[in-house]
Amino acid sequence: MHIGIIGAGNVGVGIADALTYLGIGKKITLFNRHIDKALGEIWDLSDCIPLLENNIEFHATDDLKDLKDCNIIAITAGIKQKPGQSRMDLLNENLKIIKNIVENLDEINEKAIIIMVTNPVDILTRVAINISKRDKNLIFGSGTVLDSIRFREAIGEKIDINRKNIHAYIIGEHGDSEFPLWSATHIGPLKLEDFNIKNFDNFKKEIALRVKKRAYKIIEKKGFTKQAIGVSVANIIKSIILDEKKIFTVSVPIEKSCGCIRKDVCLSIPCVLGEKGIEKKLLMECSELEFELLKQSAEKLDKIYAEIAKETE
């Protein structure tokens, strides 16, 4: 399985690192406009192989044509988020970059599954889907996969339960309007609300805020995020390669009529991933409040997309 990564910045390298350490894929090609950066990262990773129990083949390139045989391509190229910036602040510059990449990939390799990681991921996923000629199930964004993992971990720490037994999801925008799907949160067979948590309302507020602010706090301290998003995307890729049919909250068009929400807005909902990419979208029941939050998140994303739509035509 040949995996391509576009962008040798922190996130792109984080994905390459995670794939290497977890032994995912047979060949990794790292594309970067400045070949020396890609070469340095690939050489460094190649030196890890004798210390690991896998045999991944590495390549560095500054030519997108070298991704023509890739099965999966993760796009991370773009300007990085700085302390104090929201993900939406990155839009104008990253829009131009992504538009050019997707158009070129359509000519080079129209069968590869594309995972959008560049922020703001929901808007740029919608841009990529609308530009690309490939099947819609072959393009999706990394969305709130990491946010959902942080959500389960935070709940587990609070109630002293292994996160692997916690079924919980962050949905909506990967950004400030994301929110926890509390009504679908289960601890093993129990609904969270039946778990007898003291000061339940305060518990929920504290957890939601912690998850939403986590990336901002990391960026404030070290200037970027890398490791966790790298492992998150690596796990998405693994699910596709092994056809695991696992559920991830990735960014996709809702497509089915959902009240007042436009069906082509991309945001995160639980989806089944397998060898065909997006194999099923799980349009879940939710409370009236949660539906209103989803609607607000979708309206925010749709308004922003409308402002830049002309540039994507």
Rank of each mutant, 00 (worst) to 15 (best):
I75R: 13
K96F: 02
F195G: 08
K226T: 05
I278T: 09
S287H: 06
G78F: 00
K191H: 13
F195N: 12
N100M: 05
K212I: 08
C266W: 01
E107K: 15
D63W: 01
G143S: 11
K256Q: 14
V265G: 12
I304C: 11
G277C: 04
K238S: 12
K276A: 07
G12H: 03
Y216F: 11
S177R: 12
C70W: 00
V233C: 11
C286M: 15
N10F: 14
W182A: 01
I166L: 13
F179Y: 04
G4T: 09
V231A: 14
N55K: 15
I207A: 00
G12M: 07
E173V: 03
E157K: 15
S251L: 00
K222E: 04
T61V: 11
N196S: 10
E206Y: 05
I101N: 02
G40A: 08
A74F: 04
K27F: 02
E173I: 10
E193D: 13
R150D: 10
K133I: 02
S251G: 13
N199A: 10
I15T: 03
M116S: 07
K280L: 09
N199F: 07
R214M: 14
N55I: 03
V265A: 06
Q81E: 03
S268D: 06
K65H: 13
E279V: 07
P83S: 09
E220D: 15
S232H: 00
P180H: 00
G175R: 01
L22T: 12
K295P: 02
L273N: 12
F179C: 09
L242P: 02
C271K: 06
A184S: 13
S239E: 00
L192Q: 01
D147W: 12
A128P: 10
I240C: 05
V211I: 12
L30I: 04
R150G: 08
I237T: 11
I241G: 12
G274C: 10
Y305F: 15
R262K: 14
M116P: 09
P120Q: 08
L30D: 04
I108R: 06
S232T: 09
C70T: 08
L22F: 07
K204F: 01
K198N: 15
L209S: 14
I229C: 08
T225M: 03
G175P: 04
K96P: 03
